[in-house]
């Protein structure tokens, strides 16, 4: 028996919004430690890794490890039927081929349930090596989303250059060149507005705007985003999900042809 309950459906809606542009379907691996999802996008350029800890749920029970392959378009249709403030409960029997998603209004006067067929997905799990990153940048998630959106107008690619002075995002194309520099913030009143750079050595990497923009669909989940970079390895873009877990996106760099 698997049962996981969250106080607000809005969190689940935001999580789905953060992955459904990259993935058509995905397997949710459930165990007593929580729910994990790891999947590559269709073109195998990026990898999404979602971790939701069992202690972040209002109620969590998972008697046996369970892998639930879900069509994310179908899940989106179901979540559309929830009000943001509704409680949401996911339930499945052991070895079931369906999952039930139930919404309850705060006053419990409206209860709806949706049974969704599960899929057998033949997904490859990849082992992600530990990396000592050259640069780790923490910055406001909204600012990162804005920069990715703005630079995508100028080029398919953005160059991220990180030094101890700051981080520079550049794009160059037919229109010309765009550069956005962010300096590390001195003292800030609000932690969520800070730009913090931890640098071992400077790094310059090139990434496809299209994927960065897809990752920024996670912006509503978190006030800050963390970018971890190292020469010739994938960028890690991480959004914390408060009290519940995190979503990480890995993006392979563009390399000299």
């Amino acid at each position: 028996m698997f049962e996981a309950r969250l106080g607000q459906a809005t969190i689940l809606k935001k999580i789905l919004d953060a992955i459904k542009d990259l993935l058509n379907e995905a397997t949710f691996d459930c165990s007593d430690s929580g729910i994990q999802l790891q999947a590559m996008d269709n073109s195998h350029v990026s990898l999404v890794s979602l971790t939701l800890r069992s202690d972040g749920f209002d109620k969590f029970r998972c008697d046996r490890n369970l892998s639930m392959g879900m069509n994310l378009g179908s899940m989106a249709k179901i979540l559309k039927c929830a009000n943001n403030e509704d409680n949401v409960t996911m339930k499945a029997q052991d070895n079931a081929d369906t999952v039930t998603i139930m919404f309850e209004s705060a006053n419990q006067e409206k209860v709806s349930d949706y049974e969704m067929k599960l899929m057998n997905l033949d997904q490859e799990h990849l082992g992600i090596p530990e990396t000592d990153f050259s640069c780790v940048v923490r910055m406001p998630a909204m600012e990162f989303a804005r920069i990715c959106r703005d630079l995508a107008q100028f080029s398919e690619s953005v160059v991220i250059c990180c030094t101890k002075e700051g981080v520079k995002f550049s794009a160059s194309g037919d229109v010309g060149t765009a550069n956005i520099k962010l300096a590390q913030t001195g003292s800030v009143d609000k932690e969520e507005e800070a730009v913090i750079i931890e640098m071992q050595e400077p790094v310059t990497l090139t990434f496809a705007c299209r994927y960065l923009n897809a990752f920024t669909k996670a912006t509503p989940l978190s006030t800050q985003v963390q970018l971890s970079m190292c020469a010739d390895v994938p960028l890690v873009v991480e959004y914390a999900i408060k009290d519940l877990g995190h979503i990480r996106y890995y993006l392979a760099p563009k390399i000299e042809d």
Binding site: V45, L126, T206, P234, A252, K254, I255, E256, D257
Partner: peptide
Amino acid sequence: KTKQAGIMSFFSKK
């Protein structure tokens, strides 16, 4: 000119 690398060239299959 740059070309897009695939993610599987960085991570091993489990």
